[in-house]
Design a protein around this nucleic acid. Sequence first.
DNA 1: CGATGTCTTGAGCTCTGTCAACGGGCGTGG
DNA 2: CCACGCCCGTTGACAGAGCTCAAGACATCG
Lengths: 249, 249
Amino acid sequence: MYLDFTQGPGQGPGLNRQSGAAAGIGDQLDLLATHAPSSRRLIHAGERLYHAVDRFDRLYIVGTGMCKTVEVSEDGREQVVAVHFKGDWMGLGGIAAGYYGCDAIAMATGEVWSVRYKELIDAGSRTPALLSALHLAMSRELLRKRASMMALCTLPADARVADFLRYWADALAERGLRTDQITLRMTRAEIGNYLGMTLESVSRALSRLARGDVIRFSEKGRRDIEIPEVGALTKFIQRSMTPAGAAVH
Amino acid sequence: MYLDFTQGPGQGPGLNRQSGAAAGIGDQLDLLATHAPSSRRLIHAGERLYHAVDRFDRLYIVGTGMCKTVEVSEDGREQVVAVHFKGDWMGLGGIAAGYYGCDAIAMATGEVWSVRYKELIDAGSRTPALLSALHLAMSRELLRKRASMMALCTLPADARVADFLRYWADALAERGLRTDQITLRMTRAEIGNYLGMTLESVSRALSRLARGDVIRFSEKGRRDIEIPEVGALTKFIQRSMTPAGAAVH
DNA sequence: CGATGTCTTGAGCTCTGTCAACGGGCGTGG
DNA sequence: CCACGCCCGTTGACAGAGCTCAAGACATCG
């Protein structure tokens, strides 16, 4: 899926597989552990990794679990700007800003790795694969944000929710996990905030998706969602585009 | 404004100034010309630099003029995902995707530089400042997209337009250009597409901003907009947030 | 000068936000 | 153990922001 044009004959192992975005996830951490002075840290849901105002210093990588990053604008508007799964890097905006600009908050118990940016760059001159990993991570986040903007700008509320579920399922699939049963670790309010709509709209959208048999609510709770067929989400999104066919009811 | 934590004692000149985002813009091009096998190309408005489906190969940098990048999703939705001013890099999403994923189109006559990504990386091992420039560019685009998402998710239509104008003015200011008189090189439809609204809403928003004396239409045409006071845009945005005071009329 | 594309403005309608009521899960404390 | 409060989620009724459709004014270009 993702091609790595940076591979050269002399490069170390890792990051050379081409079997998906997650190809280098394990390798990334190996690389860091082996070639750069990285550190690990256990985290629990709700715990904050760094504050928006903190001076930029380290980059963080989700080892296990998942995190969200939340931005607060000067005039107090607050927004979830990203959800980070295993292998995703965090804090990349700090490179240019000098401070993080977002709060990073764990959404589940897990482990997070981190490296000093400066030391990563130094190590990168010896181990180019480290730089490749960094570039891939940044580029991937760019792609993700592009997709988010596309959804925000062109999809109606219901389809945005469907798109969000598809994204979540894809993220799990890329990491070799089941996608027929996902656990959203966010409240409706958080999802709505991320998707630019209210919690009520999220709730209604999910209800409609369930009524249309695109998803099913698990017995375990309303945050556990069964997706028998991820393709059905895509179909739903496309249907909501055509001027003719909306309304699944 | 933007701090560069990568500066080391041994680094070459350039990218070490701290006088704003544009600090390294001239230097970037110097760097490329001196240390990497880059090439230049003249472009005219409407000309396409690369196609979304093209295999990723080179990164592009706006030397003079400006460009937009347009994404087309599989199901045919089309969206302007970014506007690129002097010094902005383009094609960064291709690093992870393997293809560009966007069309890049010139919006004015100008000059665009480009480097093979692979060769840039190679040169970067000899000239670390090149890598710093790349990282800064990527990080900056991440910040920009974050800001876009924030606007899309939390601002009403009028304020999004105001935010867009402010962004444009700031971009000019960072490059040492006048901001009291800007020329939008986009149709209302393009602006609306970029901001997630219709061309009519853009038109109405601009009319309201003009009525509220936040902007003025130039005699030269409706795409030339005078902004006597950039701060007024910010005030307008904040006013549209407070539940009490909206309505400038 | 007509043709085309762009911009503005109005009128009506729809989607989604707002406000409100209600139910369920969970932890705390009596 | 149950009662209570709190947070989360769902659903309904309503209102309003923004979209759709339509008409007309301008500008540009052949």
